[in-house]
């Protein structure tokens, strides 16, 4: 009887050990938030074309995040160890972000590289000298620090853009949102997006079809003024309008 009890006890211990081996602890809210933030950082870098310049770093960052997620859901590690895995993933994502700027310099997005000429109806060519139509450009509009609302001084420019778009129904517009260098890259990327969207919304309210407008955020990556002072920052907090 005693031997039998010992046997049953041993079986129970083994069963518990197996169950523990397969246990999933589930991700905590903080793990999930952290994973989402890292994933967002990687996705933004990817959206900005990092795969062309640094495919190896992109692959490594994604794998690190996957690894951290895996370890966070398995029951093998304590919270400090899981944190260390997320820190490694975050570092890989930061390294990736640091490469976005140089990548954009090497491979500027096509619509930004050269503002296309306006699609104007070809005039009859009486003159022997061919005249290229002057490209239409618009002034940039600027924003207050950490804000994305349209200031009063931006409204005349936006009105001019809207008038042009209405007179040229084939024209398409890209709005680039930019920020100054203060704040994290990911925060500034989101802020740039809000700025571009604010201008787009304003133009739509002025009667321009939203389908003719696209937006893109460059965050702090393409400053108009590379200096590190308030005057430069004020110039860099802007929306740029590019006709496509």
């Amino acid at each position: 009887m005693r031997k039998r009890n010992l046997f049953l006890f041993a079986l129970l211990v083994l069963a518990v050990a197996f169950a523990a081996g397969c246990a999933k602890r589930g991700m905590t809210k903080s793990d999930m938030d952290r994973a989402d933030a890292i994933a967002a950082k990687i996705a933004k870098a990817e959206k900005m074309g990092i795969v062309k310049c640094n495919p190896r770093e992109l692959a490594a960052a994604k794998a690190e995040l996957d690894h951290a997620r895996h370890e966070a859901t398995e029951g093998h590690y304590n919270q400090a160890e899981v944190d260390a895995y997320f820190t490694a993933a975050d570092k890989a994502a930061d390294n990736l972000w640091a490469l976005v700027g140089p990548c954009l310099e090497k491979n500027p997005p096509k619509p930004i590289a050269e503002p296309p000429a306006v699609a104007a109806p070809p005039p009859p060519p009486p003159a022997p000298m061919p005249m290229a139509p002057a490209p239409v450009t618009f002034e940039s509009i600027h924003f207050d620090f950490d804000k994305s609302f349209i200031r009063a001084d931006a409204k005349p420019t936006l009105q001019a853009v809207a008038d042009y778009m209405k007179k040229n129904p084939d024209a398409k517009l890209q709005i680039e949102g930019h920020c100054d260098e203060r704040g994290t890259p990911e925060y500034n990327f989101a802020l740039g997006e809000r700025r571009a969207n604010a201008a787009m919304k304003y133009l739509v309210n002025l009667g321009v079809a939203g389908s003719r407008i696209t937006t893109i955020s460059y965050g702090e990556e393409k400053p108009a003024d590379p200096e590190h002072n308030e005057a430069a920052w004020a110039k860099n907090r802007r929306d740029v309008f590019v006709l496509r």
């Binding site: 795969v51 495919p55 190896r56 992109l58 692959a59 490594a60 994604k62 794998a63 690190e64 996957d66 690894h67």
Partner: peptide, 12 residues
């Protein structure tokens, strides 16, 4: 990208 992903996951 695909190759380095494969390599990274193999390392993991």
């Amino acid at each position: 990208y695909e190759y380095y992903s494969a390599e990274s996951y193999f390392g993991l």
